[in-house]
Computed example of a mutant assay.
Amino acid sequence: MTVFDTVSRKTLALALALVLLPVAGGAQEAVQPPAAAKAADPAPAADPDAVAAKVGDVAITEGDVAQAAEDFGDELQQIPEERRHEVLVNVLVDMELLASAAREKGLDKTPEFERQMGLLRTRALRNEYVRKEIVDSITDADVKAEYDKQVASYEPQDEVHARHILVETEDEAKAIIAELDKGGDFAAIAKEKSKDPGSAENGGDLGFFRKGQMVPAFEEAAFALEPGSYSKAPVKSQFGWHVIEVEEKRKTAPPPLEQVSDQVKTALVRQKFEQTMSDLKARIPVEITGAKDAPEGETGAPDGAAAPAPAKQN
């Protein structure tokens, strides 16, 4: 029997939180992660059956410690790496002491406890099935095939790389165009005179954008210009008056596989999850006899992981 047979995730989280509290009176400062810690070489994996501590006849194994570290990675970020094993062992020892006291009181025999353990076991089995039969079943070849399918249907779009100078009046915009006609530097003028706080410091640079991403008047003028040219007449929008310069035009391309592989896999996991649920419901009779509406946020996906969203190709 190991300590993880008797504890729940919420109890462990609470115990770990108590360990992290600073000692009253300031004797112990809150632990902060190193500001710029150098990545350490990974420590060799411990034997999961090795005993890290014993509480009475109950062994706390390195496997228990590793499981706790995996489940509570976020909380452990508050603790220096060299102390994490010690903290986890101490937390698990304290938990087993409390669990032993609970068993002495017969609290592990109550109907409420049995119901709770049944739910925890069901949840753990669900998560294990999703991990092994759904998530881990999606191979790199599956991801590549789905990516290739999406790329085959990808439709390139026109993009322009533009700069602009935004001013309050048409006369100011005309004066800037006259200055450009005399050889003025567009970026330098934008930095000096543009009222757009988001782009002025970058010489008016807006980067690349597609149709539908800018206000109509601005977009129409920008896409009508040839690379290397600027607008010869001020362009009015609800923001003021613009002088626009287009640096480059291009067609969009699908992102490389390595950039979107995680999103593609997430989409495949969602598809397989939904298909699995559909197949199970078709094979196993389900009768809802209680409340008709499930609690908000209830899902068949693993804890902390709602059914993933489909990949979006830019």
Rank of each mutant, 00 (worst) to 15 (best):
F208M: 03
P42W: 06
L125V: 09
A101N: 04
L166S: 02
K109W: 01
L97W: 06
P254T: 04
E96I: 07
K54A: 15
G203Y: 03
I189S: 07
D196G: 06
E296D: 13
N314Y: 10
K182N: 12
Y154A: 01
A45I: 13
D181V: 02
Q78N: 12
I177G: 04
R83T: 08
V31Q: 13
R84M: 09
L280G: 03
T11R: 15
E179Q: 03
R115N: 08
T110N: 09
A173T: 11
A66I: 02
P295K: 13
A291G: 06
A52R: 05
R121A: 08
H164N: 14
D185T: 15
I177H: 03
T110F: 09
K54S: 13
V91F: 00
V7S: 14
A50T: 07
A309P: 02
V264I: 15
I244V: 13
V65W: 01
A253S: 12
K312H: 10
A307V: 14
P295S: 09
H161V: 01
F218A: 15
D5W: 05
Y147H: 00
L107K: 11
K312N: 11
L166A: 07
T252L: 00
L12V: 11
K292A: 12
A267N: 14
T266W: 02
L18Y: 07
A141Y: 05
A37H: 06
D148N: 14
V89I: 14
Q271S: 10
G203C: 04
A37N: 08
A66T: 10
G184A: 03
I244G: 04
L16I: 15
Q28W: 10
T289D: 10
E104M: 07
D47N: 15
Y129G: 08
L12A: 13
F218E: 07
E192V: 00
D74N: 12
A36K: 06
V51D: 01
K251M: 10
E287S: 11
A187V: 07
R210Q: 14
F239W: 13
I177P: 08
